[in-house]
Simulated scan of single mutants.
Amino acid sequence: MNLERFKEKLVKFMSGRYGIDQLYYALLLLTMVLMLVNLKVDSLILMLLSNGVILLLILRSFSRNISRRAWENKKFLKIWYPIKRKARMLFRRIKEIKVHRYRKCPNCKKTLQLPVKRGKNTVKCPRCQEKFEVRVIL
Rank of each mutant, 00 (worst) to 15 (best):
H100C: 12
R60N: 15
K131S: 05
E96G: 03
P82L: 06
T31L: 04
N73T: 02
Y25N: 09
Q22A: 13
Q113S: 15
T111C: 05
K86Q: 08
V99N: 14
V136K: 00
K109Y: 04
K124R: 03
L77F: 01
A26K: 08
L90M: 14
G119I: 03
C125R: 09
P115D: 11
K98H: 14
K131Y: 08
K120H: 10
Q129P: 00
C105L: 09
L29S: 15
K98Y: 15
L57F: 11
W71V: 07
E8G: 03
D42F: 02
N121P: 01
L59K: 07
K74Q: 10
V116E: 11
L29F: 15
L10Q: 02
R103Q: 10
C105A: 11
K109F: 06
I20V: 11
F76A: 02
S43I: 00
F62V: 13
K86C: 01
L28D: 06
R85G: 03
V116F: 13
K78L: 04
K78W: 03
R92F: 15
R101D: 15
P82I: 03
N73E: 06
R93A: 07
N73F: 04
K120V: 12
V134H: 03
L138A: 12
I79C: 13
L10R: 00
K84Q: 06
L56H: 07
I66C: 08
T122E: 14
L59I: 09
L90H: 13
C128P: 00
L112S: 05
K120P: 03
N107I: 02
L23W: 04
M35P: 00
L57I: 11
K124W: 02
G52P: 00
K104G: 05
L36R: 00
Y81S: 04
H100D: 10
V136T: 12
T111K: 03
G16E: 01
F76W: 04
K7F: 05
M89Q: 10
L138R: 10
K98D: 15
E130R: 00
K40V: 13
